[in-house]
Design a protein around this nucleic acid. Sequence first.
DNA 1: CCGTCCGATTTGTGATCACAAATTTCGTTG
DNA 2: CAACGAAATTTGTGATCACAAATCGGACGG
Lengths: 243, 243
Amino acid sequence: MSDTSLRTQVYDSLRQALTTGRFAPGQKLTFRFIAGALGVSLTPVREALGRLVAEGAFEMQPNRSVRVPLMTRARIEELRDIRKSLEGLATAKAAMVADKRQIAELRRIALAIATARSHGDDATDRQHVREFHFSLYGIAGQPILLRVIEGLWLQTGPYMNLLYPDFINRPHGPQTRARIIRAMQARDAVAARREIENDIDRALSYIAELADDAGNIAPAAPKAGVGRRRGTAMTSLQFDYVQ
Amino acid sequence: MSDTSLRTQVYDSLRQALTTGRFAPGQKLTFRFIAGALGVSLTPVREALGRLVAEGAFEMQPNRSVRVPLMTRARIEELRDIRKSLEGLATAKAAMVADKRQIAELRRIALAIATARSHGDDATDRQHVREFHFSLYGIAGQPILLRVIEGLWLQTGPYMNLLYPDFINRPHGPQTRARIIRAMQARDAVAARREIENDIDRALSYIAELADDAGNIAPAAPKAGVGRRRGTAMTSLQFDYVQ
DNA sequence: CCGTCCGATTTGTGATCACAAATTTCGTTG
DNA sequence: CAACGAAATTTGTGATCACAAATCGGACGG
C-alpha cells in the first residue's frame, strides 16, 4: 500500500461515492457532514475536498459549502471533446506497444462486462467498464496522461449512471470493445483511436441530450444522512448511506 | 477579487515561483520553510501544496518532503503530446468563434512579445507569451479545458526558461504567431491547430533534447533561503529570494 | 578513511480551538 | 400574510498543539 493517510482515504471515499452516483448533481455537502460521516476530523476532509475542487469534481460556492456541479449540456459536451482527445491519444499510444498478455487481459475484462450485463448487474458492469478503459490507457505507459484522464472521469462520474439501463443495452457497446481489441492486435493505432472516440462520443452525446431534456437542471438533490462509524480498523472509509 | 484565502495566495505564490523558474527541477522544499518564507502557518501551505502535488507540479516522496519533478526526456515528451492535443483542440474551437476584437487583442500581445524580445527582456517576454496563449485558448470559452491546460503549463513551467535565450531567437517564433492570427481571421480551424501544435512540438522537443544531454539529471538544485515578511497588508505573498 | 548504529532533530499528519462570515431562524411590523 | 431584520446557529479558514516516522549528526568500530 502506498498512501495510507486519512486525507487519501477521504479522497478515495468521496471519489468512490461520486463515481457510483451516490451524490446527485447539485447536491450540497458540508465539511463537517463528511467528517462526521467518515469519523475523522475536519483536517483530512479539507485537504481531500480541496483537491476534488481543484479537479472540478466539486464546486466551491463563492461563499460557503461545496456541491456537485450541475449537469449542463455545455459542460457535458466540453468534457466529451476533451475526453475524446485525450483517451484517443492514450489508446493510439497503447495500440502501438500492447503485447499479447495485455490484449488477453482486455479480452478477459470485456467478457466480464458482457457477463455482468447479461445478469443486469449494473454496479459490477460499471466497475468493469472502468477497468477496461484504464487497463487500456495504462498500456500506453504515460503516467501524466493517465492522471489527467482520471480527473476527467471523476468529473463525468456523477452522470454516467444515467446511461443505465437504456443506453447500455444498445447493440454497439460489445462491438466497440471487440473492434478495439482487434485493432490492438493489428497494431492499428488509427482504428483503435477512432473506435474509442466514437464510443465516448455516443455515450456523452446521449447524456448531453438528457441534460437538455431536463432543462439544464439537476435531478432533485437528496438530503443526505449518514451512519456514524467509529470503527476499530479504519482500512477504508465508506459512506454508509446517502438517502 | 474572487478568492482572498491564504491558501489561494500561497498557491499563487508557489505557482508564480514555479513558472518563473525560481525553483530548480529536483529541488526539495519543506512545509515549514514555505510557511516561514511567506509568513503564514502550516495550514494554508499544506492545502496549497496538496493541490500542487495533485496537479503534478510537485512530487511528494513516499516518505517526507516535496520536490519539483526532475526533468526527464520521457516526461517532457509526454507533456508535449498532451499539450499538443489539448491546446490544439482549444485553438481549433477558438478559431471557429473569434471575433475581430479578440483577434486584435492577440495581435497586440504578439507585438508586445516582439518588443520585449528585441529588448532582450526575457521576463516580460515569457509573461506575454503566456498571455498570448491563454488569451487564445480563452476565446474558445471552455472553462474545463482551460483549467486542464493551466495544469499542464504548471508542469512544464520549471523547464520553459531553458528556452532562453537560444531557442527563442530562432526565426520561427514570430512567424508562428502571425500565421495563427491569419488562420483565425480566415476562420481556418485546421490551420490554426496545426500552427499551435507545431509551435508546442518545436519548443518541447528542444527541451526534451536538453534533458537528454543533461543525462536526465536536474540542474544543480540551489539551496533556498528566504527573507521573512510579516507585512501589514499581505495582499500578495511573495518569495523574497531563493538563492 | 569508510560504514554502521543510536540519539537528537526535523518534518508531515491529524485533532482541536478560535473566529469571522454566511446562513438560518424567528419574532415583529406594515 | 408577506417582508424585513436582528439574534442564534452553522460553516469554512487559519493557527496551534501533539505525535510518530523519517532524517540527520556524530561516535564508534573496522
